[in-house]
Amino acid sequence: MQTTLAQYNETQSTDAFTLQNSKLLKVSLAGKTIQAKLGSMVAYQGDVTFEHAGAGGMGRMLKKAVTGEGQSLMKVTGTGEVFLADSAQDVHLVYLEGEKITVNGPNLLAFDADIDWDIERVQGASGAMGGGLYNTSLRGTGWVAILSDGPPVLLNVAGAPTFADAQAAITWSQDVTTSLKTDFKVKNLIGRGSGETIQMAFKGEGWVLVQPSEGRVEAGPTNGSGGGLGNLLGG
């Protein structure tokens, strides 16, 4: 039999996190533990265990309940290889070395279990305008896998005043500060404006990653393996 399937052979790498392709993350566990978006497993080989990760403390559980921010996570541990994906979105890897990044919750795919996470209000978000703007912060040393709905653009915040839609700005580095830029005018309220009445402003020494989308609508559980695992783990 002649096929062209060899081009899809498993990627070989000594890194714990590696891209099988632009839409599929391969994680080599080797006895370690990671946390991943609930239902993101598409395949695995070896002796691997999945369990609901919970919020990791009462404080974070309350923040998740109040803000609606933060993914439902699963702990993945064992010896083997796990392949993770979400709706064929693009996957990007960031390696932290004692650093912090901020991530839009739905765009977080997986991270090393040694990395600490929390839910934080976006700087500059307060009152009725910004009360719902919360994101997930991650700090420590290890890999973080981030999703984007299409190929993103990496903007150097120090280069020029930088603004983005709150759902399109999916992650930014620790030395970047944020604020809200509002543009409420009568024409915006009667449907003649652009609709982009609130933008996030970024400044500092660092970067922001912006996807070409305002985010996907979350699908409900399906009969597939992802939805089934999510139900099994109580997601």
Rank of each mutant, 00 (worst) to 15 (best):
V91I: 09
E69R: 14
G70Y: 09
E69P: 01
F111D: 00
A110P: 09
V82P: 07
Q71W: 00
K100C: 04
L108S: 06
A36L: 10
G56T: 02
G59P: 03
F83I: 01
E81H: 06
S87M: 12
K64M: 14
D90W: 13
M58K: 15
I115P: 03
G105H: 15
K75F: 08
S22F: 08
E97Y: 09
S22T: 12
F111P: 00
G80A: 12
K100I: 02
L38P: 00
T77P: 00
L96W: 01
A85D: 08
S72Q: 13
Q89N: 11
K63I: 07
S28F: 02
M74A: 06
F50D: 06
F83K: 09
A53L: 07
G54I: 14
D86E: 15
A110N: 08
I34P: 09
Q45C: 04
A36C: 09
G98I: 04
G46D: 05
G56D: 02
A113N: 13
M41V: 14
F50P: 12
V82Y: 00
T79R: 14
A85H: 11
V48E: 04
E99S: 15
Q35R: 14
L96M: 03
S40Q: 06
D112T: 02
L93W: 07
G70E: 04
G105S: 14
A88N: 15
A110M: 11
A113Q: 11
A113H: 13
A30Q: 13
V42D: 05
Q89R: 14
T77M: 06
L29M: 03
I101Y: 06
L38C: 13
S28V: 07
V48T: 11
K32E: 10
V76W: 00
G68H: 09
A55M: 11
F50E: 06
Y44K: 08
L108M: 08
L84T: 09
E99I: 04
L73M: 14
D112V: 01
G39Y: 07
R60Q: 11
V103A: 07
G31V: 04
L73W: 06
D112R: 07
A30K: 15
T33V: 08
L109F: 01
I115S: 06
D114Q: 13
V27I: 03
T33S: 12
G70P: 03
K32M: 04
L24C: 04
D90T: 11
A43F: 15
L29R: 01
S87D: 14
K26T: 02
S87R: 15
G57C: 12
E97T: 13
L84D: 06
E99L: 08
T49Q: 13
L84Q: 09
G70V: 02
A113G: 04
Q89M: 10
T67Y: 12
M58G: 11
N104V: 02
D112L: 02
G68R: 12
T49W: 01
F111C: 00
E99G: 11
G46V: 10
T102V: 10
A88Y: 12
I115Y: 05
D86Q: 15
K63R: 15
I101P: 00
A36E: 05
S28G: 12
G54N: 07
V91A: 09
V103L: 04
A36W: 02
Q71F: 00
R60M: 11
